[in-house]
């Protein structure tokens, strides 16, 4: 049995000849369809999402290629290529749509997260705002409290001052009443009360018992007004030696001072001095005038213990 053996070169020659004689013309739309199908197949999840459309596209592509290989009219080739291209494009759009839908789902989740964030921020802001308001309210309350406390302090101080004034006035009234009882006189030197000659033994510095009640009242007055001080001045008439008169007036003033010290008045509050005949209050030509001139004057200091300018007298001045 004789067999015809086809050597490989022969086969190659034959096929290449066939290929040459039937080399199909290039059809632009067929190339486009092929390229589009390739690119759509390369898209992620293309077979899962658009398998039917891709199958259609591939089926029309195969038909188109078969027409081309068979040497059919190019019209037929182009027609199926057109349909293949259209189906590939449908597949491409379908995949893009699914991709967009998935992203929509993801974006919705993202949006709710962002919304939550925005709401939290809003709450945070509102809380901060409330905190600021509360702080302001606290500050204002504090200020009001401070103002109230200040007002209370002022009112209390006013009350104290009013009470002090009242006490002062009462004291003044009481003092005036006291001094009035002692027949004190208001002068530019202050309140001055005069102890007459009759309270002393003639030409002597000893006080008569009749002076006791007056001295008691003066001591009591000084006990009530502890800041006040006394200027005790001895005066004489013009009869007799000046030096004698000076000495006598000084001793009489001293006697009054000692009597008050005896009654518990601190000696530091008492200043005694003899002014002799230097400051007569009446004429020395008559008996009555001379008797008026023989006296002890007691000058009462101001409330704080001071004497007005010119209150303090001296012999040398005259």
């Amino acid at each position: 049995m004789k067999r015809i053996l086809l050597t490989p070169p022969t086969v190659i020659l034959a096929t290449s000849l066939v290929a040459c004689s039937t080399t199909p013309p290039r059809v632009e739309i067929l190339d486009e369809a092929r390229a589009t199908i390739d690119s759509v197949e390369a898209l992620p999840r293309s077979e899962e999402v658009a398998s039917e459309e891709l199958d259609e596209a591939r089926r029309y592509l195969a038909l188109s290629e078969r027409h081309l290989e068979a040497g059919d009219e190019l019209n037929e080739v182009r027609h199926d290529a057109y349909l293949a291209l259209r189906h590939a494009e449908v597949a491409e759009n379908r995949i893009a749509e699914v991709y967009a839908e998935q992203n929509i789902e993801r974006s919705k989740i993202e949006r709710s997260e962002v919304l939550l964030q925005a709401r939290e921020l809003e709450v945070e802001e509102a809380r901060a705002l409330a905190e600021v308001s509360a702080q302001e309210a606290r500050t204002q309350a504090q200020r009001a409290q401070q103002a109230q406390a200040e007002a209370d302090r002022v009112a209390a101080r006013a009350q104290v001052i009013a009470a002090e004034n009242e006490a002062l006035e009462r004291e003044l009234a009481a003092m005036e009443a006291d001094l009035e009882a002692l027949e004190a006189e208001k002068t530019s030197r202050g309140l001055v009360l005069t102890l007459g000659d009759v309270l002393f033994e003639t030409d002597r510095a000893s006080l008569m018992p009749g002076a006791d009640s007056t001295l008691d009242r003066i001591a009591a007055f000084l006990g009530d007004h502890e800041e006040r001080r006394l200027l005790i001045e001895g005066h004489t008439d013009s009869r007799g030696e000046t030096r004698y008169n000076d000495a006598l007036s000084e001793r009489r003033a001293g006697a009054v001072r000692d009597a008050l010290v005896q009654r518990g008045v601190a000696s530091a509050r008492l200043e005694a001095l003899g002014l002799g005949e230097s400051y007569p209050v009446a004429t020395n030509d008559t008996v009555a005038g001379r008797q008026q001139n023989r006296r002890v004057e007691i000058v009462v200091s101001a409330q704080d213990g001071s004497f007005p300018a010119g209150a303090r007298r001296s012999i040398a001045q005259n």
Partner: peptide, 27 residues
């Protein structure tokens, strides 16, 4: 046949563009 394929593509494009517009809006 071409008209039918075109119509299918038009529907697919329309759906895709609406989805993409919705996505854009959310973004």
């Amino acid at each position: 046949e071409k008209a039918e394929a075109d119509a299918e593509l038009a529907a697919a494009q329309s759906n895709r563009r609406q989805s993409e517009a919705a996505l854009e809006e959310i973004r």
